[in-house]
Design a protein around this nucleic acid. Structure first.
Lengths: 163, 163
DNA sequence: CCGATGGGGTTGACACATCAACCTAACGAG
DNA sequence: CTCGTTAGGTTGATGTGTCAACCCCATCGG
């Protein structure tokens, strides 16, 4: 019906393969995480960040910086995770609560992380091989830079309505 | 706290760059689509598929095959899109309704697709350059194959509970 | 001292995705 | 014919993400 070639054939093909790949891969990984360990991808991301910190405790905004989530998403998700016993919000001297990893949360991440990492190695690292993997990492960084530059220039301040 | 190196440094770096890239890129693209045209990424995907068909009408399961969505997601989303006038479900001789692109839906996709494609070109195609883009497309296909093979072997039939 | 500003965080409403359960018609084997 | 099975589709409950509005306190210019 709409027969304009919005991208040319090579571009189409690469772009759509990329989209399909990331969806296939992420669907696969998160489904396993969910079924085997009852953790969503979001849960996993928070637990990874907390478990990699020295003390297992971080402020919400640190987690926000690490994950790039919006603060409201963070707030919602942390309250859900607290309800499930994976983390705890703990008051401390500085006005804002600290997010601390509970024993249960630590056990969960320790149980699932090696298995998850194994899948990433099998389906991503090993399939690409070292060279292509490194190249993809660098290319990814360039794309991120381009997006960030584009965001700063084309829609710098408060853009509402359209850009 | 948890100090096992689940992936080695190079692997970590490449994998996390990749995750960051795909999130940054997709967040950027979908946010613009939403703000400028009131379309979600899901809306866009359906509209693209319909508009690329000869007649602008497809069965739900064809859309499912094209998008890889679960059927319930498809059903929910199509009813929402119908409510907004982007598509219409039309009874036909074969037991199942056809999904048809409305004039409004066609206008929406024609308006936003070139702009969206321009952003993809600017932030993905041009940043990578032809060679790396083609290579990424091929690598993506390999990853998809690996995941599909893995799905067939390691959790073949109806796997519930765990795998 | 006061009011404006801004950062960190919460909340509510809504859009969306996923899962399980269900409905219906078309089969295919007995 | 009939009874299971399967494919296409719908539904409802629940978990999740996003937006806009708000709260609180710290800070800073006047």
């Amino acid at each position: 019906m709409a027969n304009e070639p919005w991208l040319d054939d090579d571009e189409q093909k690469a772009w759509r393969n990329f989209l399909l790949m990331r969806r296939t891969l992420e669907t696969h990984l998160t489904r396993h995480l969910q079924r085997e360990f009852g953790l969503s991808a979001s849960d996993f991301e928070i637990l990874v960040n907390l478990s990699e910190s020295e003390t297992g405790r971080m402020r919400a905004y640190e987690l926000g910086a690490a994950t790039q989530w919006e603060k409201s998403r963070m707030s919602h998700h942390l309250t859900r995770m607290e309800k499930r016993g994976l983390i705890r919000k703990e008051a401390c001297e500085s006005r804002y609560p600290e997010i601390v990893l509970t024993d249960e949360g630590l056990a969960a991440i320790k149980a699932c992380a090696p298995i998850h990492a194994g899948r990433v190695r099998e389906l991503f690292v090993d399939v690409l091989g070292k060279d292509r993997m490194v190249a993809l990492g660098e290319a990814s960084a360039e794309v991120v830079d381009a997006v960030e530059k584009h965001e700063r220039t084309s829609c710098s301040p408060e853009v509402r309505g359209f850009c």
